[in-house]
């Protein structure tokens, strides 16, 4: 099994990790918005790190509505909730509170992209948010959707946490979480992870699950325990 020992990934490993993540997400969160792989627009002549050009791209989930924050500024709901509730057979999975939220014309939607950084050799989260009328939200508005911890961190380190940067594949301004510490905390996670005992590192197919369990917290999103407990035997 391929593992990440130093908390980083190669771009090929990122593709493997992304495929595994979206597959497991589908398995355990079938009622929710699904992640999909978006191949990069073909950029002529620039070296592709992969043999297969389809493997260059990013992981995307769009039109997500965040579960509401409770009074303490945490999420009651566990997960990214599905925004479209038109499909009758899926309604049973959807929390009533979220259905109400969907009817709310003021609901804000989030797009999340996980893009590989060749510089940091880690996944980087890019996101944007907009009102139902398509108007993009500014960071001050987005703050209102974030848990208290994130808001505090944003105040403490204004320029080192969330900033607006150019999306490396779309070349448009998106918000991003700064990736410079990612490999460090991924290494820490690997030490806490029993299934990756004996210092063998994080199996690549579980990398993004561990990663998202940390990054999701910025938005108050958690992923189900079943996903976290997945053995390496998949």
């Amino acid at each position: 099994m391929v593992v990440s020992r130093d908390g980083t990934l190669s771009s090929t490993e990122f593709y493997v990790a992304a495929s595994a993540f979206s597959e497991q997400w589908r398995k355990f969160n079938s009622a929710l918005r699904q992640w999909s792989w978006v191949p990069s627009p073909k950029r002529p002549w620039i070296s592709h790190n992969q043999v297969n050009y389809m493997e260059e791209g990013y992981l995307s989930v769009e039109n997500v509505i965040l579960p509401e924050l409770n009074e303490e500024g945490h999420r009651d709901g566990d997960l990214i909730e599905k925004e479209e509730c038109g499909c009758a057979e899926e309604d049973e999975f959807i929390d009533a509170a979220v259905l109400i939220q969907n009817d709310d014309a003021g609901a804000r939607q989030y797009d999340f992209h996980v893009v590989y950084s060749a510089c940091y050799r880690v996944p980087v989260l890019y996101f944007r948010a907009y009102c139902s009328d398509g108007q993009p939200l500014l960071l001050d508005d987005i703050k209102k959707d974030l848990p208290l911890n994130s808001v505090e961190q944003l105040t403490r380190s204004r320029w080192l946490f969330i900033t607006q940067e150019e999306h490396p594949q779309l070349n448009r301004p998106w918000y991003t979480l700064h990736p410079c510490g990612t490999s460090e905390w991924m290494k820490l996670l690997q030490h806490n992870d029993d299934s990756a005992a004996q210092g063998e590192g994080i199996p690549v197919d579980k990398y993004l699950i561990s990663w998202f369990s940390v990054v999701g917290q910025v938005f108050g999103l958690r992923i189900p325990l079943e996903m976290l407990n997945l053995g390496g035997t998949q």
């Binding site: 950029r43 002529p44 620039i46 070296s47 060749a118 510089c119 490396p168 070349n171």
Partner: peptide
Amino acid sequence: SWEKVSYINRP
């Protein structure tokens, strides 16, 4: 348009 330019950061 910036679409006419490709640019990347790469080690």
